[in-house]
Design a protein around this nucleic acid. Structure first.
Lengths: 226, 226
DNA sequence: ACAATAGTGTCTGTGAGACAGTATCGA
DNA sequence: TCGATACTGTCTCACAGACACTATTGT
């Protein structure tokens, strides 16, 4: 790609390009991550992130979506490129560059009856995973740590948290999601004020417990209205 | 990298992995980007970002550093992974995945007498480059746009701007850098208050024009002191 | 009536934005 | 003394944090 030092790419040693997917969801008040068990030899038997090799006719993002579909049967969920990991020895077999993607999905869309049926994938608490000295395949522990940090950082100034909620949600639920991602408690009144201009009421109410029901909201699409 | 669908990577079509480097600096009150002229055929003659193919024994970050060294003779400058571009047709010859890196360097460290001597690289105004319909090789226009946006975004909550200043700097100079990256004027008094806890005086003064000289500062390393 | 959670009004401190002023250099 | 730029004090307003209060459901 260089002028002075340009060479025919065909003359270069090629390498395999893979994608690893970090599919996050929220369940039981915790941030969970989809893991699979490796069948084949490097790190066989260990938990790992789902991943596939990028095919010649697809983009890395396509490959990430395919990996998600193969494990869960889901399509069209939120995907965001995380980082590209390229340590020389990250795969003991050969040189592999991996582009990591984060996927965020509301728990209710993850139906274990469909795609998870055969894949054998499961959800695990992301933060516990990082605290334990739990063995993971490849450099996946580092990848997860990178993703967890990014997630916490981007909550403040982006809409990522909303991808973990459904199309409509209650403010108490949304607050719980923010608290989980940030790792601390928030004050109800202030949180609601901060959210006020980003959401709009649907008119519906959430059924549920033996207490006052909460209103349903949806994310407001910010039309720059000036 | 997948459990159920794991395959021997050797059986997969490999692809070339390249890095492209966006070396930014500030000159004459503008944000400038290092460009080269392509010699070889796809897009020969067009301006392009410096880049190299990733060798089997180096990381993408190593490759980016090498690309910078080959064009400028510089080592040890600030590097940050930007994004990985993998459109299927981004190189007409063959499939190439490119990991883009941003490099930030103070103008005074870029000596055109040394490395730039033979390389034929030059600096160009980054914002003008994006406004003009100027032809650029490959998808480099999109890469530059991505970098410009990221740069503006990260000024607010990181220390990147300081990498464009030297080891020591004056507050007026630092303010100019922030203004260039953000694309707007800032108020002197407020800017200084915001910077106050991130910088410390060196004791030195900047020589210069026929007016009051300004104090020199350096970036304070935040020791979490609680 | 009570438990439990949803939702609101308001005080306070911090910090950004805006402006007006003072300080220090060379000529 | 003057032009030019460095640097500072302070007012205002918006907003985050913190707390106390009211509202509405099921039992």
């Amino acid at each position: 790609m260089n002028g002075m030092n340009a060479q025919d790419p065909a003359k270069h040693a090629s390498m395999s390009v893979a994608v690893d997917v970090l599919l996050f969801t929220i369940e039981d008040g915790r941030l969970k991550l989809l893991l699979i068990r490796r069948q084949d030899d490097p790190f066989a038997g260990l938990p790992a992130l789902p991943g596939v090799f990028v095919r010649p006719d697809e983009t890395p993002e396509d490959a990430a979506a395919r990996a998600i579909f193969e494990e869960t049967g889901l399509t069209g969920i939120y995907l965001e490129q995380l980082y590209t990991f390229g340590a020389v020895d990250r795969d003991p077999r050969m040189r592999i560059i991996s582009v990591a993607y984060m996927a965020l999905v509301p728990r209710e869309e993850l139906t274990f009856s469909a795609g998870l049926r055969t894949s054998g994938a499961w959800l695990e608490d992301a933060d516990e995973l990082l605290q334990d000295g739990r063995p993971l395949a490849f450099d996946h522990r580092q990848i997860i740590r990178t993703a967890r940090t990014r997630l916490a950082g981007k909550v403040e100034y982006t809409d990522i948290a909303f991808h973990l909620a459904g199309e409509t949600f209650t403010l108490p639920d949304l607050q719980r999601i923010f608290e989980i991602l940030l790792g601390g408690k928030l004050y109800k009144a202030n949180f609601r004020k901060k959210m006020a201009d980003r959401i709009e009421e649907t008119g519906g109410m959430a059924a549920g417990g033996s207490h006052r029901p909460s209103r349903l909201y949806r994310l407001k699409k910010e039309e720059p209205c000036s």
